Computed example of a mutant assay.
Amino acid sequence: MSDSPDVLRADIERTRQELGSNVDALADKVSPSKMMDRQADKVKHAFGSVRDRVMGVADDTGSAVADAGASMGEMKDRAVAKAQGNPLAVGLIAFGAGLLLASLIPASTKEKEIAADVKDQAQPVVDAVTDAARDVGQHLKEPAQEAVAAVKSTAADAVESVKSDTQQAATEVKDQAQTAQENISGA
């Protein structure tokens, strides 16, 4: 390794840039808003994947609709063929048909009373869950802020360490250059 001041300055600048990018990446990683965005993206991807498996790719659906000239019998045959290989789709269709039939039958007085009782009994649970979720959110906010503060503190300490090492190295280089100059002058 060379003891040239230019090489040392370049090495120090490179180290500063690497440290800065590492601190930025770490701050981005522990940012509560970024964490929520990443979790939301995961959920969206999971739902999209399930939707694609159940409903088929949009191109498949579009091609079925685009073929408007096909007879009803052909469209029924296509739907049956698609559903045969997908038991989840068949289950969803059956569930939907059941819900449709159930919605056509009016609720009895007894069912309405039971529904009202269940709603009244569930309200304290709903309130407790809401309060618990709010408390969890408040409890997570403080550790996240502490983590950010710790990262900032560590980064500041690292910058000071690099600055100190740089000054020490510059002093050593200066001393070595002066010693070499004295050796050359004395020779």
Rank of each mutant, 00 (worst) to 15 (best):
S2N: 12
S2R: 13
D3I: 08
D6Q: 09
L8Q: 09
A10Y: 00
R16H: 02
R16E: 11
E18A: 10
E18C: 02
L19W: 02
S21T: 13
D24P: 01
A25K: 11
L26G: 07
L26T: 14
L26W: 05
A27F: 02
A27H: 02
D28K: 09
D28T: 05
K29C: 02
V30F: 10
V30A: 04
S33Q: 11
S33H: 05
S33W: 01
M35E: 13
D41E: 15
K44S: 13
K44R: 15
G48Y: 01
V54H: 06
M55P: 02
M55D: 15
M55F: 10
A58M: 10
A58L: 11
D59G: 08
D60Q: 13
S63M: 12
A64C: 04
V65N: 01
A70T: 02
M72E: 12
M75R: 13
M75E: 06
R78L: 08
V80M: 07
K82V: 06
A83N: 01
A83M: 13
N86C: 06
P87N: 06
V90S: 10
G91N: 11
G91I: 00
A97E: 12
G98K: 07
L99R: 14
L101G: 08
I105E: 05
A107N: 09
T109L: 13
K110V: 14
A116P: 03
D120G: 01
P124R: 02
P124E: 05
V125P: 03
V126Y: 09
D127P: 08
V129D: 07
V129R: 11
V129Q: 13
V136S: 10
Q138T: 09
H139P: 00
K141D: 12
Q145Y: 04
E146C: 03
E146H: 12
A150R: 14
A150M: 11
A150G: 14
V151H: 06
S153W: 06
T154P: 00
D157C: 05
E160G: 07
K163M: 08
S164I: 12
S164C: 04
T166V: 04
A170N: 05
E172S: 06
V173Y: 00
D175S: 08
E182N: 10
A187S: 07
A187K: 11
